[in-house]
Design a protein around this nucleic acid. Structure first.
Lengths: 189, 189
DNA sequence: TTGCGTCGAGAACGATCGTTCTCTACCTTA
DNA sequence: TAAGGTAGAGAACGATCGTTCTCGACGCAA
């Protein structure tokens, strides 16, 4: 064991830290999780955690940013596996349905973060808005490619409504209803 | 001033307390507001606050419950002022648009509460679910009356999506987009 | 081998939280 | 008028928070 910590070790510790923090924050809420619980879950000394992220707020932002990349990346992969442009839009809701059915699904991490910190942390608010804008742009691109540009915003709103509703009610059926409505808005085939 | 507090005084103090707490909770978030700030804003002694509500959680639930009655009451009044069944459904989105444009609009108080306390307070979670179920039932009733029962859930999802989107982005335009989509889902006139 | 610098483990700090307690004043009733 | 009980004001309590500091251990350069 070297006395100096290598760059590679830092990257690995960073990932483990983000893994632990993301799980805890999503399960229990951000404010409900203390840095000491993050320390226990990650197995990293508090000192090391604070060397990687100067404040809890920075850690929260990093968690959200990495989750955004993974979440939208998975969505894109799933959608791009579908050839037909119209079916691609509907695949968004199929993907949402699977997400809703996952054990431990607790709604949208960004909406939850907004509810917790949107009014007290500018950095978190900016991260939440960046994620939503990016998601909206993705959806809009696929809807336009399906030849129904006017449906872009409504389809995005249906997705948002389904996510928040499934999160609160715990019922994944919202994805099905949103999918049907999206199909209607895209126009008859 | 009597030494004993009358029932009427208790009711009035309760309302003032709920007014102050609701404003603070909505503006800054529930966890971010201490009971001492509630005391200052309401002008009531801490002792009296705790005689009206045994815990902060009880106060939060009472705030949400009263807000639900007022919020859905205002919505109903606005919708019932419209005679045509189809226009009634669209009036929901007109009402939302006005709400979004109000200064200090910060999204859905129940969704925000869910994000903050949904995982740690059973009572708050139940209150949030009760509100969303009631709102969904209202919307569904109006949509069915407009002769498009299949559109009930999609219209509800559009409303939810518009609320959460307007809250995060700060842009009231979501109501307009949702309204247009709802009109389409209700069928051509 | 001897310092030097950085590490991990965990105590400690100051602030703040929800909640309760103390104490004084005053109204009510006999 | 005297006694009793309840009010308000605010200190106090114990817990917990994010963050920092202490301290002993250990790898590395000289």
């Amino acid at each position: 064991m070297p006395a100096q910590i290598t760059e590679e070790q830092n990257r690995q510790a960073r990932e483990e830290l983000l893994d632990s923090a993301e799980t805890l924050f999503y399960e229990r809420g951000i404010q409900a999780v203390g840095m000491d619980q993050v320390r226990v879950a990650s197995g990293l000394p508090l000192k090391r955690i604070y060397r990687l992220f100067a404040t809890k707020e920075e850690l929260v932002v990093a968690v959200l940013r990495r989750r955004d990349a993974r979440w939208r990346g998975a969505l894109t992969a799933r959608v791009h596996a579908v050839p037909d442009a119209r079916d691609r839009v509907l695949a968004v809701f199929d993907w949402l349905a699977e997400w809703f059915a996952e054990p431990g699904f607790r709604g949208c991490a960004w909406v939850n973060a907004f509810g917790e910190l949107g009014s007290s942390s500018e950095a978190v608010l900016a991260e939440v808005r960046a994620h939503k804008d990016a998601f909206r742009d993705q959806v809009a691109g696929w809807v336009r490619a399906a030849g129904a540009p006017a449906a872009a915003e409504p389809v995005f709103l249906l997705a948002e409504g389904a996510i928040v509703t499934a999160g609160i009610s715990g019922d994944p059926a919202a994805a099905r209803h949103a999918r049907t409505a999206a199909a209607t808005l895209l126009g008859a085939h």
